[in-house]
């Protein structure tokens, strides 16, 4: 039992190292015209643009995410509470979720223009769906008896939301937010690739144009690390929220 736990922990810690080693070996086999080594990639992360890009990408992702979270929560809960509209719109939201959204980018560009506006909007457009869909489903599953308790105490809509609906959907909502953040980040990076002069997406395109391999690898590795760290933090929060105490929820 403990021996197995140790194996697992060692294994988990080893995975990044294994990936790094694989990267190193592939780079050596393929040559630096095709794959940059980890050391070169790291060296290419130049102070001049690195922190500017980091700031630009995270700012856009953060703003897009906040809007996606607020709007997704609001729409999702509303649709979850009004059975009829939920049924009407559920397949529509699922369909939009499943389309290749990148191809719609020209439309965002036309509406929001070149720069911050379109990448924030595009990030939000990517991030809102998981939040909305999960909030809607979780709201539908709020224990009806709990809602009756709220009504028997003549709670207002706001009170009912704050005291009954929100705590009920909270653990699922965190899952939605985690997925939503990842997709928002993806949307922002895609937006930067096509219509921005700042951020990692833009730098990546620059590096491609110049065939600057170390920089390309440096940027991709950075993005993976950011995505992983943010996701791990949100996952922690999520797991804490659905801990053993609440595991056997009321339903």
């Amino acid at each position: 039992m403990t021996a197995q736990r140790t194996t697992i922990l060692i294994g988990q810690a080893a995975i990044p190292l294994v990936l790094l080693a694989l990267w190193q070996v592939s780079a050596m086999l393929a040559g630096d015209f095709y794959i940059a080594t980890p050391a070169d990639a790291f060296a290419a992360l130049d102070r001049d643009w690195f922190f500017d890009s980091l700031g630009a990408t995270l700012l856009a992702a953060f703003v897009g995410f906040l809007i996606a979270a607020a709007a997704g929560l609001w729409i999702g809960v509303t649709l979850g509470l009004t059975r009829f509209w939920g049924k009407v719109l559920e397949p529509v939201t699922l369909s939009v979720y499943s389309i290749p959204k990148v191809t719609l980018f020209p439309i965002f560009l036309t509406v929001f223009g070149f720069g911050l506006g379109s990448k924030v909007a595009f990030g939000m457009f990517h991030g809102i769906f998981p939040i909305l869909i999960i909030a809607m489903n979780a709201t539908r599953e709020v224990n009806v008896v709990h809602l009756k308790v709220a009504r028997s105490l003549r709670l207002s809509r706001t009170q009912t939301f704050k005291q009954v609906i929100f705590p009920s959907i909270y653990p699922s909502l965190l899952t939605g937010l985690r997925l939503g953040f990842s997709l928002t980040l993806l949307g922002v990076i895609l937006g930067e690739m096509f219509a921005s002069r700042a951020g990692f997406g833009y730098e990546l395109v620059e590096a491609i144009t110049l065939h600057d391999m170390p920089r390309m690898y440096g940027i991709v590795a950075t993005l993976v690390v950011i995505a992983f760290v943010v996701n791990a933090l949100l996952l922690r929060w999520e797991q804490a929220a659905s801990g053993p105490r609440r595991a056997v929820a009321a339903r």
Partner: peptide, 23 residues
């Protein structure tokens, strides 16, 4: 061992890898 990595997998902005494969 892989569990946490699999849960995180879809957080990775996969399209950033595309230029690497083109290269």
């Amino acid at each position: 061992i892989l569990q946490p990595y699999l849960t995180t997998y879809y957080a990775i902005p996969i399209f950033a890898f595309y230029p690497l494969f083109i290269a």
